[in-house]
Design a protein around this nucleic acid. Structure first.
Lengths: 166, 166
DNA sequence: GCGAAGTTTCAAAAAATACTGAACCGACAA
DNA sequence: TTGTCGGTTCAGTATTTTTTGAAACTTCGC
């Protein structure tokens, strides 16, 4: 396989993966492109490589920076902005966990709290509150487990953890 | 908050959560409805409750069964099919991990393998292969960690694990 | 075999989401 | 002050995804 084919295949597949994760195809492709790029790239270069418009590139780069997956890099003398990806996969996963926890798990916890206040004025209502209580319990545990996970370091994750639970 | 409001809010929120997870809104809503339903429901009842068409209900119920999140229940005497949700959240999460691993992580591992065969005939190609190698290493670790996680039981997950890593 | 009750399929329509391109903004140099 | 280079925004358009609804199919009792 040639380098060109390999790069294309990677960008392609990473894009597809992203889209089953609520991340849009282009955003994931930009991330893929930067991941495999030893040098920082400018918006122009990204547009060129992926054949996308300036607006599209700009919006998705912004979003990647928001997620902590890409950083802006200013080269001395150059007016243009350049971009590099976080290359450490454990950092990438950690950032995704942090962001999704904040955007999804935490709001859900708040909703579950509100819902628990349903008046238990019937058999049915009591059953409902009980089911919600269980979901809340589980979610809280997931929440703190993720917190701990995010604080732990990569070596722990890939090394000790696996042996410990075997 | 009344029972009706509570149920609606839960179905609503679970639906929204689903849609940021590559699961479509309706599928997540059906799942939510079944989760909080002490009794098995028929397709008719689901259609009625969520105001959706027969085709939509059928397709999404099938998909939920595929994911192992919902089971068909046949009541003696009745010709209709009824559906119940898996209520144990740990089982729900486990099934989602199993399915997504199969659908997303495993294909990506295969792609990474193919890509590693890029000829290292230039500096750039060597760097590329090296980055891919790192991603592959990480993905393999994630793969086996998830395998182990899925084999472990709920109590372990929520109890021991957290204390161990603190 | 026929009709009733229920399920499945899928082409077409609707809705949601992403992308484009052009206008606009700001910083800088001439 | 003006022109250029880049970044940002966003209304309109294109694409993708989801939903509908009707027809086809299946199963069963008569």
């Amino acid at each position: 396989m040639t380098l060109k084919e390999g790069k294309e295949k990677f960008i392609q597949s990473w894009g597809a993966l992203g889209s089953s994760w609520g991340i849009n195809r282009t955003m994931a492709q930009i991330h893929a492109l930067l991941l495999i790029s030893p040098e920082a790239l400018s918006a122009e270069e990204i547009m060129e490589e992926l054949q996308i418009s300036r607006g599209n590139a700009n919006m998705n780069i912004r979003a990647l920076i928001d997620w902590g997956l890409v950083f802006k890099e200013l080269k001395p003398g150059e007016r243009k902005e350049f971009f590099v990806a976080e290359k450490d996969m454990w950092e990438v996963v950690k950032n995704i966990i942090i962001q999704r926890k904040k955007r999804e798990l935490e709001p859900m916890l708040r909703v579950l709290d509100e819902i628990s206040s349903v008046d238990p004025e019937s058999e049915e209502a009591e059953e409902f509150v009980e089911i919600i209580r269980e979901i809340k319990l589980f979610s809280n545990k997931a929440d703190s487990t993720l917190d701990t996970l995010v604080k732990s370091d990569s070596n722990w994750f890939v090394g000790t953890f696996m042996k410990m639970i075997k």
